[in-house]
């Protein structure tokens, strides 16, 4: 009887504690949909204090302030675009991990393709020039030698005489 009461007491205490713990943690998950939207959006935003981290990953003071600001703006019904505009007005395009295509970012967007194109052109030129050089360097073969060479290369050559 006594043991039972003690168990019941322990269970009640445990329940009370877990309710209290859930209560303490609740502000962070008050609105899971909003938090999810915040995480998705802030993963695209750069933390200015630790520049290789996104706002979502960062625990820098400024990142926390900015996330709170974004949270408030979301609650006020602002769209993701409006929030991004708000941040770029203050911190520049640098806050966006996905910068817009405009005159100052052409180099960034088109540079890799330009480099690829230049590289391919250089390669084609080089190969073409080499083929000409190789053709010029190789001596003329007689018809019989050509046949023999072909046979050797194809692997079904008769053992050399």
């Amino acid at each position: 009887m006594r043991a039972e009461r003690a168990t019941a007491g322990a269970v009640a205490l445990w329940l009370a504690l877990s309710v209290w713990a859930a209560d303490a943690a609740s502000p962070a998950v008050a609105d899971p949909a909003l938090e999810h939207r915040l995480m998705v959006l802030s993963a695209e935003l750069r933390c200015l204090v630790c520049q290789n981290q996104s706002l979502a990953d960062s625990h820098a003071d400024l990142a926390i302030d900015l996330k709170n600001q974004v949270r408030e703006m979301m609650r006020a019904g602002q769209s993701d675009e409006q929030i991004k505009a708000y941040l770029t007005q203050r911190y520049g395009d640098f806050v966006l991990y996905n910068p817009p295509v405009k005159a100052t970012t052409w180099m960034l967007w088109l540079g890799p393709f330009a480099a690829l194109l230049a590289g391919s052109a250089a390669l084609v030129l080089y190969l073409r020039r080499r083929r000409v050089a190789v053709a010029a360097a190789s001596p003329d073969l007689s018809a019989a030698d050509s046949v023999r060479a072909r046979r050797l290369l194809d692997g079904d050559a008769a053992p050399p005489a």
Partner: peptide, 13 residues
């Protein structure tokens, strides 16, 4: 105190 004006001025360092 809460850094709101800092955000308006783009303060990060």
């Amino acid at each position: 105190a809460d850094g709101k004006v800092g955000i308006d001025y783009g303060v990060y360092g």
